[in-house]
């Protein structure tokens, strides 16, 4: 069983590397969308610094939602999903591995790119580590919760917009506490409560989402 999980991890990583352009597109969206804000609200550093944290977190959420379509749809179309179901390893664990690799190509990349965005929006220096930290803890939950929507709509041909609408309400708590944690850290306040909530969301979604996703995928293949 372990061999199957490792094999999936290695294969997905290899595929992600050969499609590195898609990860770069996520970052490109992240950066380009941010550059629209000075055009909309003006280039005054105070305004940008005030809205910067929130804008970056919201864009990270949108970027994760944008990538959801790639999570299961390609596998459903090329028959790989059936092979996953035929594996002796439980589908729930295979799903968790898939989400992990997907996160490496989206959430992790966004977290690593976020200091650049912090500089672009004139955020204080503390943001250079506070933003990546909050995104590192927060984005895995975004991916896991988003995976439920992606799996439910896989094969329905409804596309990613509906999946995004479906999971958006569930993602909002993560956004609130992630933003809260980042701002508290930037202002030097006590961020423990918000960080603990973020961590709790991560553990909760890690425990529940794979079961929901696996059930949805089994239904999609019926």
């Amino acid at each position: 069983m372990r061999a199957a999980l490792i094999a999936l991890f290695v294969r997905d990583l290899r595929l992600a590397r050969r499609r590195a352009g898609e990860s770069l597109l996520v970052v490109a969206f992240f950066v380009l969308a941010l550059t629209l804000f000075p055009l909309g609200v003006g280039t005054s550093p105070d305004i940008l610094a005030r809205i910067g944290t929130g804008v970056i977190w919201v864009l990270a959420l949108l970027a994760v939602l944008l990538g959801l379509e790639r999570l299961f749809q390609p596998d459903l179309e090329d028959g790989s999903l059936e092979q996953l179901l035929l594996s002796p390893a439980p589908l729930e664990l295979l799903v968790a591995v898939r989400c992990l690799v997907h996160w490496l190509g989206t959430g992790l990349v966004l977290a690593l790119a976020s200091p650049l965005l912090a500089i672009l929006t004139h955020l204080p220096n503390e943001a250079l580590w506070a933003l990546p930290l909050s995104l590192l803890i927060g984005t895995p939950s975004l991916t896991l919760i988003g995976a439920i929507g992606a799996a439910l709509l896989a094969g329905s041909g409804k596309g990613s917009v509906l999946a995004a609408l479906l999971v958006l309400p569930l993602e909002i708590p993560v956004l609130i506490f992630g933003l809260n944690a980042a701002e508290a850290l930037i202002m030097g306040l006590d961020a423990r409560a918000a960080l603990l909530f973020l961590g709790a969301f991560f553990l909760g979604s890690l425990a529940l989402a794979p079961f929901a996703v696996a059930a949805a995928l089994r239904l999609a293949l019926e």
Binding site: A4, L8, R14, R19, D78, Q83, S87
Partner: peptide, 23 residues
């Protein structure tokens, strides 16, 4: 009808993956 192969992998990689996945 869908053969469960990934176009971006080599022939050997595809088969080695499926062999490991299927146990």
């Amino acid at each position: 009808f869908a053969d469960g192969l990934k176009a971006l992998l080599t022939v050997g990689e595809n088969l080695a993956f499926l062999a490991a996945l299927l146990g």
